[in-house]
């Protein structure tokens, strides 16, 4: 059956999935769907069922144009939008297969380490405190690493000041995930593989320790020190 999936993918990549692309290289093929004309596709199965039950929304959506669904997304429990983001940040040179495998390996290692601790723990209290779900650990780690302020270089009177500015929520998520991925890439030795290192970093960050949390605190401290320049913004 897996072979059939592969075959179907090959066939679909040969056939034209999108309308004729404007450029010679279809690099921005998804961008041709302008946001004012096309609606975002819905991936959640429950949300879709709700829409089908509601007549008003159904009639409104019936004749509006919707973007084609992304290939890397699905409704199944294998898919999570934030994990998909992590894959994209890990990805190099568009090699999504490798990136996804690395993220999967990371999650496996997190789970293995936590479950090992869980099954060797002696009391129920110890067990209750161990979080084994890799997704929870990843989301919690990002939450702990999110900075709220950033330093922006602004030139006033020929001098560049590092001015503290508030960071948008979306950007803070991006920065936190990128820091974690970079920390994962900075391995102590070549023997330690990227997934192993990233797993350790994520677990550390989830429990509020480790160098990425330290990095966030350092940035906040720097912003605090440069408080006097805040009015240059």
């Amino acid at each position: 059956m897996l072979k059939n999936f592969l075959l179907s993918q090959q066939i679909s990549s040969i056939g034209s999935r999108f309308p004729a692309a404007p450029a010679q290289f279809a690099v921005r093929s998804y961008a041709i769907y302008s946001p004012d004309k096309y609606l975002e596709p819905i991936y959640e199965k429950e949300q879709l069922e709700e829409i089908f039950q509601n007549k008003e929304i159904k009639e409104r959506l019936q004749f509006s144009q919707i973007k084609p669904a992304e290939q890397s997304r699905s409704w199944s429990f294998f898919d999570h939008p934030r994990v998909n983001r992590l894959c994209n940040y890990v990805m190099k040179e568009g090699n999504k297969v490798l990136a996804r495998n690395l993220v999967e390996e990371t999650f496996t290692r997190i789970k293995r380490k936590q479950l090992r601790a869980y099954h060797t723990a002696e009391t129920d209290e110890e067990r209750r405190n161990i979080v084994c779900d890799p997704l929870t650990i990843y989301l919690g780690a990002v939450e702990n690493c999110r900075p709220f302020l950033d330093l922006l270089p602004i030139k006033r009177g020929g001098i560049t000041y590092q001015v503290p500015v508030p960071m948008s929520e979306k950007h803070s998520y991006f920065i936190a995930t990128r820091w974690l991925v970079h920390a994962g890439r900075d391995r102590p030795t070549r023997r330690v593989h990227f997934p192993e290192n990233l797993a350790n970093e994520l677990i550390d960050a989830f429990y509020g320790r480790g160098r990425v949390v330290q990095q966030k605190n350092d940035l906040h401290k720097q912003c605090e020190a440069n408080r006097a320049y805040a009015h240059y913004r």
Binding site: L2, K3, L6, S8, A69, S74, S76, F78
Partner: peptide, 20 residues
């Protein structure tokens, strides 16, 4: 080899819904 197959195949979960 299988991991490669799997990660390629899983983008097609939506398609295999009926089959499942």
């Amino acid at each position: 080899m299988f991991r490669k197959l799997f990660s390629l195949s899983r983008v097609h979960h939506g398609k295999c819904l009926r089959l499942v």
